[in-house]
Computed example of a mutant assay.
Amino acid sequence: MFYHIKELQYRAKPERPDPVYARKLQEVLGGQYGEMSVMMQYLFQGFNCRAEQKYRDMLLDIGTEEIGHVEMLCTMIAQLLDGAPAAELDAAAQDPLLAAVLGGTNPQHLIVSGMGAAPTDSNGYPWNSKYIISSGNLLADFRANLNAESQGLVQVVRLYEQTTDPGIRDMLSFMISRDILHQNQWKAAIAEIEQMEGVIAPASFPRELTVEPATRQFLNLSEGEESSEGSWASGPLPDGTGHFEYVSKPVPQGGAPTLAQPADHQHSTLGSGPYIVNKGMESL
């Protein structure tokens, strides 16, 4: 059961309308790394969690908080659209070229969402569930969560630098603070699981079934050997199973492929290359 209260988690009130900035905020609402994505990602991971209850509870705590962040952004976007010059928005709605001239306002805020936020990114592309990860493997999922918080924070910080409105900056400062906390939480959870199960996800695949040299060799497959200077090219493997090996001149290990011809076909030369023509289709 979810229970909604009217008060926001934190303040979300701009000093003045700004329809152009409202469009920019759509990215951290409905974009790939927006609040809608982390909300759905954490909630689905929590709903599906079969691990120890503390992990399920943490996922649902943070996921439910993200619902509140979605509401804050929607509230801020709606207020940024309040009092926007209606004549300009009307004109932009009729002529996309004029919309660009007017500075990047989003005609859909007038046409589709009635001067409110929409579940889309800053270009109007609809949010979709392909943005989220919920695999059932906690280590893999928590690493995806750390990535989502990292990419999201990069975008929010960039948006902070693109406004001087004290009300917007106040809300973004709070969201930045929560993103910092969540990155630390996912890092802590990842370290805890790695301590128990190791650093490879999943931990269940038998190591004796791997091609062992391939688990440690770093292949130099681009011009230059600067990559050999990194910790990923020499020294101990993080999983404790050996050491990295740098291969400066890798060679193919498989022969050239030869594909068998289909049993029932005719050959026809069309243009410069051979094509297979199925029987019964020659006249098409």
Rank of each mutant, 00 (worst) to 15 (best):
Met1Leu: 12
Tyr3Lys: 11
His4Asn: 11
Ile5His: 15
Glu7Met: 08
Glu7Cys: 03
Lys13Trp: 06
Pro14Asn: 14
Pro17Ile: 14
Pro19Thr: 13
Ala22Val: 11
Arg23Gly: 12
Glu27Trp: 04
Glu27Thr: 05
Leu29Pro: 03
Leu29Ile: 12
Gly31Lys: 07
Tyr33Thr: 09
Tyr33Lys: 03
Met36Pro: 02
Met36Ala: 10
Met39Ala: 06
Met40Gln: 12
Tyr42Met: 02
Phe44Thr: 08
Phe44Lys: 15
Gln45Thr: 08
Asn48Arg: 15
Cys49Ile: 05
Glu52Cys: 04
Tyr55Arg: 09
Arg56Phe: 01
Arg56Met: 12
Leu59Phe: 10
Leu60Glu: 09
Gly63Ala: 05
Thr64Ile: 14
Glu65Ala: 14
Ile67Glu: 03
His69Met: 07
His69Ala: 05
Glu71Ser: 07
Met72His: 01
Thr75Leu: 08
Ala78Val: 00
Asp82Ala: 15
Asp82Ser: 15
Gly83Thr: 00
Glu88Lys: 10
Leu89Lys: 00
Ala91Cys: 03
Ala93Lys: 09
Asp95Phe: 05
Pro96Arg: 04
Leu97Gly: 09
Ala99Asp: 02
Ala99Ile: 05
Gly103Thr: 03
Asn106Phe: 08
Gln108Ala: 10
His109Lys: 00
Ser113Asn: 10
Ala117Ile: 03
Pro119Arg: 13
Thr120Ile: 14
Asp121Leu: 02
Asn123Pro: 01
Tyr125Pro: 00
Pro126Met: 10
Tyr131His: 06
Ser135Lys: 13
Asn137Val: 02
Leu139His: 06
Ala140Gly: 04
Arg143Leu: 04
Arg143Val: 04
Ala144Trp: 01
Ala144Gly: 08
Ala144Gln: 06
Asn147Glu: 12
Asn147Ile: 10
Ala148Arg: 07
Ala148Met: 11
Ser150Leu: 13
Ser150Val: 09
Val154Phe: 11
Gln155Asn: 15
Arg158Met: 14
Arg158Cys: 11
Arg158Ser: 15
Tyr160Ile: 13
Glu161Ala: 07
Pro166Cys: 06
Pro166Gln: 06
Arg169Ser: 02
Ser173Phe: 11
Met175Tyr: 05
Met175Gln: 13
Ile176Leu: 14
His182Asn: 06
Trp186Gln: 07
Ala188Lys: 09
Ile193Ala: 06
Pro202Gln: 14
Glu208Tyr: 12
Glu208Ala: 14
Glu212Met: 15
Pro213Tyr: 04
Thr215Met: 11
Leu219Asp: 03
Ser222Gln: 11
Glu223Met: 10
Gly224Asn: 07
Gly224Lys: 02
Glu226Thr: 06
Ser227Ile: 10
Ser228Asp: 04
Gly230Pro: 01
Gly235Arg: 12
Leu237Val: 00
Pro238Gln: 12
Asp239Ser: 05
Thr241Phe: 06
Thr241Val: 00
His243Glu: 15
His243Pro: 01
Phe244Asp: 01
Tyr246Asn: 05
Lys249Trp: 02
Pro250Asp: 06
Gln253Trp: 09
Gly255Ser: 13
Ala256Met: 08
Pro257Ile: 09
Pro257Gln: 11
Gln261Ser: 11
Gln261Arg: 14
Pro262Val: 04
Pro262Gln: 10
Asp264Ser: 10
Gln266Ser: 14
Thr269Gln: 10
Gly271Val: 00
Ser272Ala: 09
Ser272Gln: 09
Ser272Asp: 13
Pro274His: 03
Tyr275Arg: 08
Tyr275Phe: 08
Val277His: 07
Gly280Pro: 08
Leu284Cys: 05
